[in-house]
Amino acid sequence: MTELNLTILLASVVAGAAPIIFATIGETITEKAGLINLSLDGTIMLSAMVAFVTAYSTDSIVLGFAAAAGVGALLAATVAVFSIYLNQNQVAVGFVLTLMARDLAYFLGNPYSRLAGPQAAPLPVPLLSKLPIVGPILFNHYWPVYLSLILIIVAWWYIYGTPEGLKLRSVGENPQAAFARGIDPRKMQLFSALLGGLFVGLAGATFALAIKPGWGRPQGAEGTGWIALALVIFGGWNPIKAAMGAYLFAFLQVIGIYLQGWFPSVPAQVFQVAPFPLMIFTLMIMFFAQRETAQIWAQNTPWKQSLLKLLAGNAPACLGKPYRPE
């Protein structure tokens, strides 16, 4: 009985983490090129609304996902164009868009509130879903969940294993040097914003068409964008570590139901705060791990060195500092 429960629990963690993984990996890609897209929370809400309305009107789940990806890319492009070409503060633009996109979603989505709409059907993978334990955990989900699993690997490979990924990282680390090597940092950042925004849009669609089907105020996806932003940092700008963070958070969310049984006076929302102190803590550790004292402390001790290496997830050196051509 306990084993069955554990399987269900892990399966719901894998499913619940899917939209967070889309958003986290999308933002990781964008930030790798040095651009911060702070509009995540609003983007997820607006793309969720558009996904639901599109799927509802056309009766096509795939079109819903496509429209949501388009919305995500459009909002990310707005941040990128304002920041790169119009010299505006990217944090300011992202913040305004966050609030505005959420309100826009509530406003335009109002007539579609609480309607029964289409949702993705469960799609067990043939053969693999029959495997004991692993089958139900990994291979008995909606298709976006499989996509989220594949995306983790592909994003990692893209960033660290391809020439395109190297260009992306070089722009985030040192745009001047990248420019000298014939890469246009502005185009690269715009591209990274579009690509990342696309995945953030998918996060919204995954909410509205699979994980928390339907639209309404509140939808239930509120706050996910901020959590994803925190997880990007928690993951040290590495898509695999960030995805682990997403699973950890989804696990906390699922376990929160049990925790509430043990601590009935604490509302479930309190447990959802967990990623944020972790994020601050990670940033502090990153700062101190780079200090000389930490290096001296770890000298000659292999496990301390690997610990420091694990903790010191390096932010892209030029994150949030827009490149200005001479």
Partner: peptide
């Protein structure tokens, strides 16, 4: 029968237009 979030949309649009 429209959502009250219209105010937020107007406020956001004003700031965005100013930045633009």
């Amino acid at each position: 029968q429209v959502d009250s979030s219209l105010s937020g949309v107007i406020q956001g649009a004003l700031v965005l237009a100013t930045l633009a």
